[in-house]
Write a protein that binds this DNA or RNA. Structure first.
Length: 478
RNA sequence: GGUGGCGUACCCAAGCGGCCCAAGGGAGCUGAUUGCAAAUCAGCGAUUCGUCGGUUCAAAUCCGACCGCCACCUCCA
């Protein structure tokens, strides 16, 4: 079976064939850095992560670019007040917009690490590419796709024949929708801004048309060409990006370069919280930090956010988060027991046939499922079938078979990415003494004393496990 | 108002015309194991897939209506 992706552009499942044999060019719409990243944002970033990891699992090399939107951008309402999101956040927090952008992008990068997201090759910032954006706008003006008007430079959407092909929002249907406010500066109310003039804006740059700042869509067009070339293999984002953002990117890029902009458009569905839309007023709005500060493990959050198909509405609940934590434990426990077997038993002989066929079987089923537009829920079903099968036979597994099975588990986890984090903590001398005391108590049969010590250590984050080979300990999972 | 999508057990979630009296994970209960735990294993757990109709030899899967939810319609992952 071959790899297939659902392409938003064609609205159908298509076989994936990258443009170049050497490397898959991926562009992800990244964060807008004027607020704390929330769990919904990270669902789409984790989708991008799994996509990249799976392509690498399949043997592709990737080049992945994720932009950082550090210009706030005006809303239509805000145009009246000349206020944009970054400026609003800045004013509220009594900081300048640059400091706000820095603060939230730092948080974003920190969370990428905490959630075990593989780093993109580059995270270009919009504000570092204003000169290129100006050049692109000039080119669009030259080609007749853009015009200078009172408040800025606008893109003439009716000149681009394919406008609306991605989202279905053709000029005709947009007009029929009747929600377009009139704007005297635009030739057509549907035209969108490439450059906004506003000398009072804090984040402003000089341009041939006067001081101002770039429109929202142009940054992605410019940065993707600069770092990936004129035609990308894959462009991802949240479903809300389909219109107007991605629709407008296509228009800009294709009219500017005269080439197909993106071959496969992939969009992640929004996350629901408790069955409905996440919103601050409904009280079901969670930032990633809030979840982690409540003591939930990042591995659990990662697992939950990636465990449903990316094109379905994943419903976030705290029950789900806890159950994800247990699911991750199951994977980690298997890794620990396999490592235990490997370290204990001397090498010798080959992995037995059962271990080999079990490994092959799970890898094939996993790949078949993931090939089907990243059907990770189905793929995880097979992973846990594998886990159960190995556990059932764990007592009879030799070290070479264990190595083989561990290799398989880690290969699967190279896509899932949930087995990580340090469990290696140093015991204090006091804790070591307590463990020895407990051993003595147990030998004497003084179980009330030994249980007391076990409870105490648990409180300190150390979990004890009694086994045939003596007492082991590990960092307890919360 | 226009357009698109979804509704599967206590929770999360696969399945998209016969292999389904419906994967997998979690929670729960029962048992094995353990001094007791932890981990692990076994068993139980939807005769039913939002509701009501229809098509078909056959429907969770197709069609229609209704109910509920989500998204987009120029900030929003």
């Amino acid at each position: 079976m071959s790899l297939k992706f659902y392409n938003t552009y064609s609205k159908s499942l298509e076989e994936f064939k990258p443009l170049s044999k050497d490397v898959v060019a991926i562009y992800n719409c990244g964060p807008t850095v004027y607020d704390h990243p929330h769990i919904g944002n990270f669902r789409s970033f984790l989708f991008a992560d799994v996509l990249k990891r799976y392509l690498e699992f399949k043997g592709y090399k990737t080049r992945q670019i994720m932009n950082i939107t550090d210009v706030g951008h005006l809303t239509m309402d805000d145009v009246e007040q000349g206020e944009d999101k970054l400026e609003a956040a800045a004013r509220k927090q009594k900081l300048d917009p640059w400091a706000i952008a820095k603060m939230y992008s730092d948080e974003f990068f920190e969370l990428l690490t905490v959630l075990n997201v593989k780093k993109a090759d580059l995270y270009p910032r919009a504000t570092d590419h204003v000169q290129e954006m100006i050049k692109a706008i000039e080119k669009l003006i030259e080609k007749g796709y853009a015009y200078v008007s009172g408040e800025g430079v606008y893109y003439r959407i009716r000149k681009f024949k394919d406008y609306g092909k991605l989202s279905g929002n053709t000029p005709e249907s947009l007009v029929a929708g009747k929600r377009i406010p009139k704007n005297p500066n635009k030739e057509d109310p549907l035209d969108f801004a490439l450059w906004k003039l506003d000398p009072k804006h804090i984040m402003k740059w000089p341009s041939p048309w006067g001081e101002g700042f770039p429109g929202w869509h142009i940054e992605c067009s410019v940065m993707s060409v600069k770092y990936l070339g004129e035609t990308l293999d894959i462009h991802t984002g949240g479903e809300d990006n389909i219109f107007p953002h991605h629709e407008s990117e296509i228009a800009q890029s294709e009219s500017c370069n005269g080439k197909q902009f993106v071959r496969y458009w992939m969009h992640a569905r929004h996350l629901l919280v408790g069955g409905s839309k996440m919103s601050k007023s409904a009280g079901n709005f969670y930032t990633v930090k809030q979840i982690l500060n409540q003591g939930y493990r990042p591995q659990a959050l990662r697992f939950l956010l990636l465990s449903a198909h990316y094109r379905s509405n994943l419903n976030f609940t705290f029950d789900g988060l806890e159950s994800s934590g247990s699911a991750v434990d199951k994977l980690v426990n298997l890794k620990d027991s396999l490592e235990g077997i490997i370290s204990k038993k001397s090498k010798g002989g080959d992995a037995n046939q059962q271990a080999i066929s079990l490994s092959n079987s799970v890898l094939v089923k996993f790949e078949e499922s993931m090939d089907d537009d990243l059907n990770i829920a189905k793929a995880l079903g097979y992973v846990f079938d594998f886990v159960g099968e190995v556990n059932r036979n764990i007592s009879s597994i030799g070290s070479d078979s264990a190595s083989k099975l561990l290799e398989t588990l880690l290969k699967l986890d190279s896509v899932i990415g949930c087995i990580y984090g340090d469990k290696t903590i140093e015991l204090t001398p006091e804790q070591e003494r307590l463990i020895r005391d407990r051993e003595d108590a147990r030998k004497k049969g003084d179980f009330s004393a030994s249980d007391k010590i076990r409870d105490e250590l648990k409180r300190q984050g150390i979990q004890l496990i009694d086994s045939k080979d003596g007492t082991k300990w590990k960092k307890s999972l919360c």
